[in-house]
């Protein structure tokens, strides 16, 4: 490819398997009641997909909290995976038969850039590896056609082993490495941060998991923090989000601890661009937002 590559859009694409369950796609074995507990988020994903339909892209690059690696940052390095993914936490909701292609060339390029930046990295070459349900869920909800290859990046546990600040600094380096590799590759990429915002779950679920009368945020603290972060996103204050990330993560039990959102912001190079919040809702008490930074449209407007 001769044209320089670019990130077409950065997307916060949370991965509750409940959303797959509620959608009843043919790949997932359990059937939902469609009682409607998560319609706000499903509508949000629908709006996101409509926005993305206006853009061309070659690859989805996902950073996932559910491939948890403690030996650095790992990358899928096998051209094709297929199998069955059963969520160990919500197995009653998610038994998904997956088949996906990997953009191994881009995966290796990001790996090499990250290694050159001093990060601990590893390519995953075992063909029997079961792709994590965070990658599957986010990619499915963003682009259910599965006709584009994927790059999946694990969540290194630096924040858990050391500190939120240390984790975010690694994600800063990883995000920048991702950006450099995408630009050098000529690919037009969607970058997906597959995490919730507030992430304290209820530890029980109703008889119908989709019962809307059960669903609400875990507590007001979580809700207030989520609103604050969403406000910063809408205001285009991406750098401030990154600066506040360690406190958000700590005080909101946020899934940002897994690094996905910090990675995404760094990959986009902290654009001062108001994000579009397509939907916000809770899933078993956790706060989830479908958000996009439409970088391609911003480029077009800037050049007009």
């Amino acid at each position: 490819m001769s044209e320089p590559g670019r990130i077409v859009a950065g997307i916060l694409s949370p991965h509750p398997p409940h959303l797959i369950y509620a959608s009843n796609p043919p790949q997932n074995e359990p059937r939902s009641s469609r009682a409607g507990a998560w319609n706000g988020l499903l509508d949000g994903y629908e709006k996101l997909r409509a926005e993305l339909a206006r853009h061309e892209f070659d690859v989805l690059v996902a950073h996932t909290p559910h491939w948890k690696t403690r030996t650095g940052h790992h990358f899928l390095g096998v051209p094709h995976f297929e199998g069955k993914s059963v969520d160990p936490i919500f197995p009653n909701l998610f038994q998904y038969n997956f088949a996906l292609d990997i953009d191994v060339e881009l995966s290796e390029a990001i790996h090499d850039e990250a290694a050159a930046a001093g990060l601990s990295t590893r390519m995953m070459r075992n063909p029997e590896f079961r792709v994590d349900y965070g990658t599957i869920t986010s990619c499915h909800l963003v682009h259910p056609a599965w006709d584009k290859p994927v790059v999946a990046i694990s969540s290194a546990r630096t924040a858990f082993d050391y500190s939120n600040e240390a984790g975010d600094q690694e994600m800063l380096a990883l995000g920048r490495a991702t950006r450099r590799a995408i630009e050098a590759s000529g690919r037009r990429a969607l970058c997906l941060a597959s995490n919730s915002l507030s992430h304290r779950h209820f530890t029980s679920e109703p008889e119908d998991p989709e019962d809307p009368s059960f669903e609400h945020v875990y507590n007001e603290n979580q809700s207030a923090w989520d609103r604050h972060i969403l406000g910063l996103m809408k205001a285009g204050e991406t750098r401030r989000i990154f600066d506040e990330m360690p406190d958000f993560t700590e005080q909101c039990v946020a899934e940002t601890k897994d690094g996905c959102l910090s990675w995404l912001l760094a990959a986009m190079d902290f654009p001062p661009l108001p994000a579009t919040v397509h939907g916000y809702g809770t899933v078993i008490g956790t706060g989830n937002a479908v958000v996009s930074w439409d970088l391609d449209s911003a480029r077009t407007e800037a050049s007009a």
Binding site: W67, T69, T71, H74, P88, I89, F129, R130, T203
Partner: peptide, 25 residues
């Protein structure tokens, strides 16, 4: 790790395979 309370494995003969998240090689 579970979220919804405590889970007890009740498949009398679970058969599959697992590749460790870190030690896949």
């Amino acid at each position: 790790v579970s979220i919804i309370g405590h889970q007890m494995q009740a498949d009398p003969k679970p058969e599959w395979w697992v590749v460790d998240e870190d030690f896949h090689e």
